[in-house]
């Protein structure tokens, strides 16, 4: 298993081990599924205590290309509960700059999870993005094929 690993697989294997051993609070990875296919992970995320999402749980899907970590992972919310949030579309697409323009190979699955937890936790009012209906109808299945406009608001 180890000898034929590509650099991206080696890196993902390392990240997976670290996430299993030392996950951020409220975050857990489906280890069995990830071990079967290192290029696609499901991550469970609990809404943080004291936030609008307390008591809710969410699922994130991470897809990696063989150019990871130079290519960013494709990250979407999946499953029956998509968080209602100004930067999360009802099809699960997330508008977060580190997933596209500001991705760096020094970031990681863990850093992305922490960023999403923080994005949810700082929300003051649960509402969908203003352009949700239009976007969901016309977008590509892959959120990385959307050209996002990032403006630094603190929501």
């Amino acid at each position: 298993m180890t000898s034929a690993m590509s650099p991206s697989e080696r890196r993902l294997q390392k990240e997976l081990m670290s996430l299993i051993k030392d996950p951020p609070p409220g975050v857990s990875v489906d280890a069995e599924q990830a071990e079967q296919n290192l290029l696609q992970w499901t991550i469970h995320m609990e809404g943080a205590t004291g936030t609008l999402y307390e008591g809710e749980s969410f699922q994130l899907q991470f897809k990696f290309s063989n150019k990871y970590p130079f290519d960013s992972p494709e990250v979407t919310f999946v499953g029956s509960n998509i968080p209602v949030h100004p930067h999360v579309y009802s099809n699960g697409h997330i508008c977060l700059s580190i997933l596209t323009d500001d991705w760096s190979p020094a970031l990681s699955v863990q850093a992305v999870c922490l960023s999403i937890v923080s994005m949810l936790s700082s929300c003051r009012e649960k509402q969908q993005p203003p352009d949700n209906a239009f976007y969901v109808k016309t977008c590509n299945k892959n959120p990385k094929k959307t050209k996002w406009w990032y403006h630094d608001d603190s929501v």
Partner: peptide, 14 residues
């Protein structure tokens, strides 16, 4: 990590 830029999709021109 909370200071990362967040946003909406580029769909302003309908």
């Amino acid at each position: 990590m909370g200071d990362v830029g967040q946003s909406t999709a580029n769909t302003s021109n309908k």
